[in-house]
Amino acid sequence: MANFWKLVQNENMKIYRRIRAWIMLGFVVFVPVLISAIYIIASGDNDANNWEMMKLETTILYQLITIFTVVKAADSVAGEFSTGTIKLLLIRPWSRSMILLSKFVALLLFALLQMALCFVVTWGLNAALFGISSDSSAVIPAFSPVAGDSVWVYIGLLYLYLFIAQVMILSVAFMLSAAFRSGGLAIGLSIFVLLSGSFITGMLSLTEKPWVKYVLFANVDLTSYLSGSTPLPEQNMTLGFSLAVLAGYFIVFNLVSWLVFVRRDVAA
């Protein structure tokens, strides 16, 4: 058995050897710069709280990063089918499971890299422009479970929760990419999940039926726990509950990807 890392290396090569990956990373750097610049121009001064700006830019950039990751995830499996390269990839002495896993790992790394870049840029930029504020209470909501803690704890959890949501949407895109072998469908549906999540959660909150708390949309945004509320106020939900539900969905999505990818004939 050769080294599994070499498969991930291959997938990395296929991600980063394309100019589009670097355009995406360029946007991750450019968008915070743009937002901070607009703030300075619009307000005419530079006395904003750097943490506030970092949080704002992160929540905006998170959506962009998720879309970029979804695009890469959709391309990862479906793209190999549409170009026909899947044939030469699958005739190697590796099981399909390992090839699929290497693709998923490479995508996770791509998402992680973007989040890390987002963190570095939004922190460094705003610290440089606005100085480092010692007033953390302005950033951490009063009812947050981490109120009173260091601002780093809050920011750290924010990134963690956003990353978990991103992994869920990545799994949806990856599943659609592997199951339908259509990149367009995978991108469209996963971006729908990303963008309509809060809207659908709002609709679900209108009913008090007990099952709604098991819906993916109601659990994917963990940041509401960070501000001291729950996604559906009428339901008895906790962070642990949501994590368990997400874990369930995660397993189902990836099980479907795996079963379809491993079993289906490569005919086209």
């Binding site: 070499k6 026909g84 044939k87």
Partner: peptide, 30 residues
């Protein structure tokens, strides 16, 4: 599979990679 080399229909390679990178890609798997 370790004993087989094949071209199935057209040899579809990764067009955005160089020829050398394509070969490195398959070499890593073997």
């Amino acid at each position: 599979a370790a004993q087989v080399g094949a071209i199935v229909e057209n040899p579809e390679m990764y067009k955005y990679l160089t020829g050398y990178e394509n070969l490195v890609h398959y070499a890593r798997m073997n």
